[in-house]
């Protein structure tokens, strides 16, 4: 049964990851490269990104103080984008969904979308409250190690807050009704403000025009939101299809089948 869930999660991850990889290829790569040039303020023209460069990886230099050539950066970034989708799909919609399905509020596809919200808050939303997404070429005042710690810490906090919201909803649904439970379940998310306020401030210094910087930030936020939306949408669709057709994995134990549909 876990295998069936995992397969569905990874499938959703591949779909969302391919779209996110496309976003990286078509939007993020050129935009980040451009902002990098601008941010570092040197007059080098951005090198052509033709396939011919692939054979001259060592001769880099197109990108400021980079250890690898721009072709490698672009290629690996696209692959990473796809893997990012697969990882989130497998870990969140495969493994986490399998264990948490009984505890997630709602029925059917709603569960997928709620899990996507929780995933977004955990992986991106909560850390961004402390460390907003930065365009390239920005000098940040906090050291990298501390920022990675903060990012990881806020992921844990985000996961805890989401679990708390789910727990609260589960406790209140039966006694106080659906609406009250849903409203009260929103409250734990306010807890995220506490670490956001208490954490050390990360002063940033950027030479980018503010329009470009805000455009980049918008692209980043939009990209992650679309990724989670696609994950949830694909997952809900796959799940519905497997319920409709009674997939062989799902029908391994027909005697256990309870009348309550989820």
């Amino acid at each position: 049964m876990l295998a069936a869930y995992l397969k569905r999660g990874v499938k959703a991850g591949v779909v969302a990851g391919l779209v996110f990889g496309l976003l990286v290829a078509l939007v993020a790569n050129p935009l980040v490269a451009f902002a990098d040039e601008l941010g570092h303020g040197d007059g080098h023209a951005v090198g052509d990104q033709h396939a011919a460069e692939e054979h001259h990886e060592g001769s880099g230099g197109e990108q400021h103080d980079s250890a690898v050539s721009m072709t490698v950066t672009n290629g690996v970034s696209i692959v990473s984008g796809v893997l990012w989708g697969v990882l989130l799909g497998g870990a969140v919609f495969g493994i986490a969904y399998y264990f948490l399905e009984p505890a997630i509020p709602g029925t059917g596809g709603t569960k997928s979308y709620l899990l996507a919200v929780a995933g977004f808050v955990t992986v991106s939303g909560a850390p961004w409250l402390v460390l907003p997404p930065q365009p390239p070429g920005v000098e940040q005042s906090l050291p990298t190690d501390l920022r990675m710690g903060l990012y990881g810490g806020m992921m844990v906090v985000g996961a805890l807050v989401c679990s708390l919201a789910g727990f609260v909803h589960g406790r209140l649904r039966d006694t106080h009704g659906r609406t009250t439970a849903a409203i009260v379940a929103m409250l734990p998310f306010c807890l995220l403000a506490i670490p956001a306020v208490l954490s050390p401030a990360n002063a940033v210094e950027s030479s980018l025009p503010s329009e470009l910087a805000s455009g980049l930030t918008g692209m980043i936020v939009f990209g992650q939101a679309v990724l989670w939306l696609l994950l949830a949408g694909t997952h809900a669709r796959l799940r519905r299809r497997s319920v409709d057709t009674r997939s062989p994995e799902g029908a391994t134990a027909p005697a256990d089948r309870a009348p309550t549909a989820d």
């Binding site: 993020a28 950066t73 990012w84 990012y151």
Partner: peptide, 28 residues
């Protein structure tokens, strides 16, 4: 996979995933 995508700072790895990390809003 999660560690490699999110936190590895080794220059070769980090620089190759530079654009992705910015696109995903991961601290860099």
């Amino acid at each position: 996979l999660g560690f490699a995508l999110l936190f590895v700072q080794e220059p070769m790895v980090h620089d190759s995933m530079h654009n992705f990390r910015h696109a995903a809003g991961i601290t860099c």
